[in-house]
Simulated scan of single mutants.
Amino acid sequence: MKKLLFTAAVAVLGFTSVSAQEEVKTYSFGEGDIFIEGMVGFSSSNDKNTEVKENGFEISPKLGYFMSEDLAIGGELSFMSSKEETAGTDTADQSTFGVGVFARYYFLDLGERFKTYTEFGVGYASTNYELADFKVNGFGAGLDLGINYFVTEKIALTFGLKNVLSFASAKADVDGAEAVSEFNLGFGDVANPFGGNAAFGILFKL
């Protein structure tokens, strides 16, 4: 009888252990994982001293593949649009389309669901200045910082600081124009104390 009870107890404990293992959720990435991510950024300013208003937004979809559990590579597209008004009159309208590649490295886990990363990307972009009727084409490279928060095993929210460190070179598409280069280190300022350009998004792990 005792042997029978002992066998039954072992069976129950074994079943409980297996059930507990099946319920363990993994909020992380692994080699071979693929993700789709969309980032959205928005900016707005209103200077009442000069009556100048500026509004802009950015959309950046990405597709990435994990070479290992910490390193992912991929490609991205981007679209940016901004508008400036002075005393209610349009003074600058511009739109930018870009394409690029990136490498992302996850270097720190903050608890079970938070994953922090740094990302390096290079790309090409073309900006159309509508009111002035000319274009500027160029390339650039930038270093971003970001964090993912896993809502579920497959879905994560993203917060990123874009172009904390960046370099860009661009040239207007007009006769006689010379290239203009720019290097930035985004320590931040009064308007944006975090540095870089803040963006929010959502990530889907396939």
Score class of each variant (00 low, 15 high):
residue 99 V to M: 09
residue 71 L to G: 03
residue 91 T to I: 10
residue 66 F to P: 00
residue 68 S to V: 04
residue 165 L to H: 06
residue 151 V to I: 13
residue 91 T to A: 05
residue 121 G to A: 14
residue 86 T to H: 12
residue 176 G to A: 05
residue 118 T to I: 13
residue 157 L to Y: 06
residue 87 A to Y: 13
residue 125 A to V: 07
residue 152 T to G: 04
residue 164 V to C: 04
residue 112 E to M: 06
residue 114 F to T: 11
residue 120 F to C: 12
residue 135 K to L: 04
residue 81 S to Q: 10
residue 168 A to L: 14
residue 95 S to N: 15
residue 157 L to E: 03
residue 117 Y to E: 07
residue 129 Y to G: 02
residue 133 D to I: 01
residue 121 G to H: 09
residue 141 A to P: 01
residue 126 S to N: 11
residue 158 T to Y: 11
residue 184 N to L: 15
residue 148 N to W: 02
residue 126 S to I: 13
residue 180 V to T: 11
residue 111 G to M: 02
residue 160 G to L: 10
residue 114 F to M: 12
residue 175 D to H: 10
residue 155 I to H: 10
residue 175 D to V: 15
residue 122 V to H: 02
residue 79 F to M: 12
residue 77 L to F: 09
residue 101 V to S: 14
residue 86 T to W: 15
residue 132 A to T: 10
residue 187 F to L: 12
residue 101 V to F: 10
residue 164 V to H: 01
residue 63 L to V: 12
residue 178 E to G: 11
residue 79 F to N: 06
residue 154 K to S: 12
residue 95 S to E: 12
residue 162 K to A: 15
residue 147 I to Y: 09
residue 164 V to A: 03
residue 75 G to P: 03
residue 161 L to A: 07
residue 184 N to E: 10
residue 64 G to D: 04
residue 152 T to Q: 04
residue 76 E to L: 14
residue 66 F to Y: 02
residue 117 Y to V: 05
residue 185 L to F: 14
residue 157 L to N: 05
residue 164 V to W: 00
residue 146 G to K: 00
residue 163 N to P: 06
residue 75 G to Y: 05
residue 130 E to M: 11
residue 182 E to C: 12
residue 78 S to W: 05
residue 95 S to T: 13
residue 114 F to H: 12
residue 151 V to D: 09
residue 97 F to S: 12
residue 109 D to S: 08
residue 123 G to C: 01
residue 167 F to V: 08
residue 102 F to Q: 04
residue 96 T to I: 05
residue 97 F to Y: 15
residue 184 N to P: 04
residue 165 L to G: 06
residue 131 L to K: 06
residue 118 T to V: 13
residue 138 G to V: 00
residue 92 A to I: 15
residue 138 G to E: 00
residue 136 V to Q: 03
residue 130 E to V: 14
residue 171 K to I: 02
residue 106 Y to I: 06
residue 143 L to T: 01
residue 125 A to R: 08
residue 106 Y to A: 06
residue 143 L to E: 01
residue 81 S to R: 14
residue 156 A to L: 02
residue 110 L to A: 14
